[in-house]
Design a protein around this nucleic acid. Sequence first.
RNA 1: GUGCUUGUAGCUCAAUGGUUAGAGCGCCUGACUGUGACUCAGGAGGCUGUGGGUUCGAGACCCAUCAGGCACCCCA
Length: 483
Amino acid sequence: MSSPIEAVRGMRDVLPGEQRATAQVRAALERTLAQHGYAHIDLPIVEQRELYLRKLGEELVGKVYEFSFGGRDLALRPEWTASVLRAYVSAMQDQPLPMRIAYSGPVFRYERPQRGTYRQFTQVGVELVGGPAPRADAEAMALACAGLDAVGVKSYRVVVGHIGLIREILASLGLEERTQGTLAWSMERMRAEGVAALRERISETIGAPPPGLELPAGLDEDQATSWLLGMLDAMRIDLSTGTRDPQDVVARLLRKLRRGDPQPQIDRALDLLYRLSQLHGSPADVLPQVATLLTEAGLESVAYVELRAILALLADHGIDQDRVEIDLGLGRGLHYYTGLIFEIYDGDQMQICGGGRYDDLVSALGGRHPTPAVGFAYGLERVAALATAVAPPAERVALVSPVSDDDYAYALDVARRLRLRGFTTTVDVRGRSVATNLRDAARRGVGYLAVVGTEERAQGTVVWRNLTSRDERRVALDEIGDG
RNA sequence: GUGCUUGUAGCUCAAUGGUUAGAGCGCCUGACUGUGACUCAGGAGGCUGUGGGUUCGAGACCCAUCAGGCACCCCA
């Protein structure tokens, strides 16, 4: 006997029992999204590798399944948003905005497998393209909650952050774009490891160039570029293997070498961000603290006003305020977010949903007009594990037991008639005895057994047995299943 | 990516470093030729995850590797 072949690590077989339950949850979620006006689309699992290189964030880029085939660099999609907006830009820009789009299907991420964490899992989600803040943000969050309610997930928490607020503060301090990005996406790290650790880390990647590494004086942009390329080439550093093209790399290097952000500015940013990252709790508690913080810093914040409006609208949507928490230290791994970001957790800290606003992504993917957009995705398997409300539809199941080989054709005819009458019907293919078929039917939970032999075949009848009540009688073919 | 833990029959688990690795459940066949869950009898099913090593002798001890689980990290 040859040895069995195992499923690939992190990939799992979904067997009939689980598949049935998961499909119910999936259908219920999709129904909820459809009822809110989101049109379902389907898109390829395989995309150009390039689609994910720029805006995904280092953490997630490292988890993308990439491969080359036929000279193309390809990737298995690690999430849907990029694909949906790619499709929007390529074929849906003629549609009236806002567009409400729903999707569901597998995504792939190379992560350490665990319970509730698989390398292939299913995302069910939406994108609201052309939906501006704050109403579209509140709609998205409320819809995410509605789906969970529809499948009976009970004790979930909605955690709300706003990356636009962070960016606004950093911009007002006059920090470079790149510095802003690095700091904005370090919020989680800062909370976990403190300011000092982050300051250390930051100084390695941003700020003034170390002494001795300055550019030769008096070079213009082109001269500096070719000088740098020459240096890199002389050092045999191959730029073609990275995720950015060589021009991009050099341009970034140049910017870094020409000027860094002054340390006082960075320290001030770190201090402000640290205090923001500590703000965590109910909106009623946190919002006033944010306001105080902004006033002390002498900052006017559009994002803060927007966040307040979103939360107020969320209440108007009927979302239980006790479920909502603000966490301004929230920094999601997808770097394309520009405003609201939110995550939904069940009671046990398992994240079951995540989303946010990404107003620059349509343009970044080549869209004609800047288009605001917001969306979210559920992890279907995680939601299904918590779903309680979905009842499988009752079905009547019958087994047809031919007594001898001569009765098999007649048994098939009986089965066809049973299916027409709504029974899920199988015919014994193993030539088993009536006794064995009964035993088998009882074990499988089959409700009805039709015995067909010589006599029934001659009469056009079956022996129709209800396995639950043990009631049995001979009935004509036309009357099968009545009562 | 880091740390820990577990892999023995289809499933749940036994087996002090010492015969031919067992049990329950499940599966298959049958119990005077067409009637049941719980009966009875019989049967199939294993290179102990894989590959090395230590030992007279390894399912057990050591190393590696693969897979599952747990806690981080991150996410859905």
